[in-house]
Nucleic acid binder design. Structure first.
Lengths: 156, 156
DNA sequence: CACATAATGTAGCTTCGGCTACATTATGTT
DNA sequence: AACATAATGTAGCCGAAGCTACATTATGTG
């Protein structure tokens, strides 16, 4: 799915500035990673929310999901379809949305991640409200490595 | 604005209780903020990169931008058009891309933000490489409030 | 039970960020 | 100067996520 575009460019590139190529590749890889993370961020938000609704009220209905996310119910339903396609959720018409095993697993990971990020931000002196708000965006971009460092930091 | 932590509320509160609306609105606002931040993240990446290229080699050409970002040159050109539309950059055909005053201002802010995020991550014990990589995604979601807390943390 | 209302689902449109393929313009070599 | 090549630009497609408008199905109240 990514681009086999530059491999050809690399071969055809004049070798005058040889030190730039690795830096370019590293940077491109980083940007690419950030972009694909952004792509799954929405799925993660939905799964996290559905898990919360299921735990809290026992059911996750499209209208509730839409309201919590601040989107129209049509948008929510469409995205839920994508969740189903990707094997994270199931839904029976007029019966609410449920998480598959994979979905539950993802929800648990995201919940732990979210708490860790919030706790670290608070530990750094960020006001609780800002920490909660910023974590919503940050949590999708925290690697396992960074996550472990966060854990170690909080245990000290 | 209410200071509810919705995930905690969901666990603590019995189903069907009132007082759900403010929490919903707060949560929707947070998600909405994260989404719009994600929308401007690409613009910020482009502006930051263009500033880097201009500072480094004196010119920012679409092909270089595309290669650094790991996208096709056509995609880069199209996004640069959006940059122009939004008043962040200018470009003359075959002459490269330049930043407007607004673009330069944004680039400076993003550069400072990037450094701060990386420095904080490193200070927390994140390996330099992971810090650099994660910061690429995180920096777009750090509010001014959190940024100031980061600064205070680093000065102590 | 009937019917009004709320929830859910469907259709169709828009913008954005990707891509490939093709067209055009500079550039540089001979 | 001519031509090959690299850079740039354009066109058209796709999928994702958003919206509104409309259709359908449950629900609940009189």
């Amino acid at each position: 799915m990514p681009q086999n575009h530059w491999s050809q460019n690399m071969k055809a590139k004049p070798p005058g500035t040889a030190m730039e190529l690795p830096a370019e590749l590293t940077q491109a890889r980083r940007f690419g990673k950030a972009r694909s993370a952004q792509s799954s961020a929405l799925m993660e938000d939905y799964v996290e929310l559905i898990a919360d609704l299921l735990a809290g009220t026992g059911e996750a209905r499209p209208t509730d999901i839409a309201r919590r996310l601040g989107v129209s119910h049509a948008t929510a339903i469409k995205t839920i379809s994508r969740l189903k396609r990707e094997g994270l959720a199931t839904a029976r018409p007029y019966r609410g949305v449920f998480l598959t095993a994979a979905g539950q697993e993802l929800a648990a990971r995201m919940r732990a991640r979210h708490r860790l990020v919030v706790d670290v931000l608070v530990a750094l002196g960020v006001p609780a409200e800002a920490a909660e708000s910023d974590a919503e965006g940050i949590e999708h971009h925290v690697s396992e490595t960074t996550l472990r460092a966060f854990g170690r930091f909080l245990n000290s």
